[in-house]
């Protein structure tokens, strides 16, 4: 006869962060982030991006449409936040900060908080590649 055993300690929510240092000042990088229509320019895997008011809808290369709510778009703090509002997520908030380092470079940080945890890693994994693409794009100008 087995004794009753406990529930698994399972993380339903996760916070995953990626960052890159870009050899351009924050004011040069911010327009790519702060203009929500420009996401498809640097986020590999996003084929299309439509913005209506505070709602952005992105369509991935695999054809998945993801509606998003723009939560924060602060050009002074250079912070952009959005929530993916599909039912796949119980909770989601992505935060992109562009932080000037006062030496002609900046730090672009992409944080993803999500439940389920798995999706935080899926989004942040793609975001990591996106930041590298953003750096290439900006540094080429």
């Amino acid at each position: 006869m087995e004794d009753r055993v406990g529930e698994a300690v399972h993380r339903t929510r996760a916070s995953v962060r990626r960052h890159v240092r870009i050899r351009r000042p924050a004011e040069v990088v911010w327009p790519y982030v702060g203009d929500p229509t420009r996401l498809a320019e640097w986020f590999t895997g996003i084929a299309e991006c439509r913005v209506t008011g505070a709602t952005r809808t992105v369509v991935t290369e695999s054809g998945v449409a993801m509606p998003e709510e723009i939560v924060t778009n602060d050009p002074l703090a250079r912070r952009f936040q959005y929530r993916i509002t599909t039912a796949l997520f119980h909770e989601h908030l992505s935060t992109i900060d562009v932080i000037d380092l006062d030496d002609g470079t900046c730090l672009a940080v992409y944080g993803v908080d999500a439940n389920p945890a798995t999706l935080a890693l899926v989004i942040a994994g793609a975001a990591g590649d996106a930041l590298h693409r953003l750096r290439e794009l900006v540094e080429a100008t």
Partner: peptide, 8 residues
């Protein structure tokens, strides 16, 4: 990876 919603 299999989990690839962005088709990357």
């Amino acid at each position: 990876p299999f989990l690839d919603p962005f088709g990357r």
